[in-house]
Amino acid sequence: VTRVNRLNDLAQLLDAERLPLVVTISGKVASENPINCEITGLKSVIVEERVNKLYLKKKEEEKCKCAIKQKEKCKRATKPQKTCNDADYWTLHSEPSDSWTLHSKSISCNTKEVPWYLDDGTDHVHVVGARGATDFGYTAVRSKFDE
């Protein structure tokens, strides 16, 4: 592996080697026109915004899947009968019938990206298609709740 220490040495490598080259580069994220993020308050080059609707849903009493003629027998029993085909029957019926459970539904998901590069103080290298890379990670995450 040919090793160079700074980004401005990368040009020499490109001149000497046959393309395409696979390289590993490190530096600080920078952009001429960063995005001003509303929630995090950060200037960023890639922003993914998700909106989810949160709601409570009244838990409905589940219907026993046993045949009606077997239902009474199931209710009196301390454990599911062999005649009951619904293995979750007792778990479902042990919950209070008026309980509420929290649900979330995705409303939208938008991603914005501006041209950006990595800079190590000696030079910079534009990065394209980073979101499709394995293990690409957003380094800051913040949520806001609007009632």
Binding site: E48, L118, A140, K144
Partner: peptide
Amino acid sequence: DKKILGLKRTERVLPVGAFLTVVGEV
């Protein structure tokens, strides 16, 4: 029966100034 609580907005960002290492093809 539903009670709407509100909207949760989540931002995931790659901020300016973050130190990053990338592997890619030139």
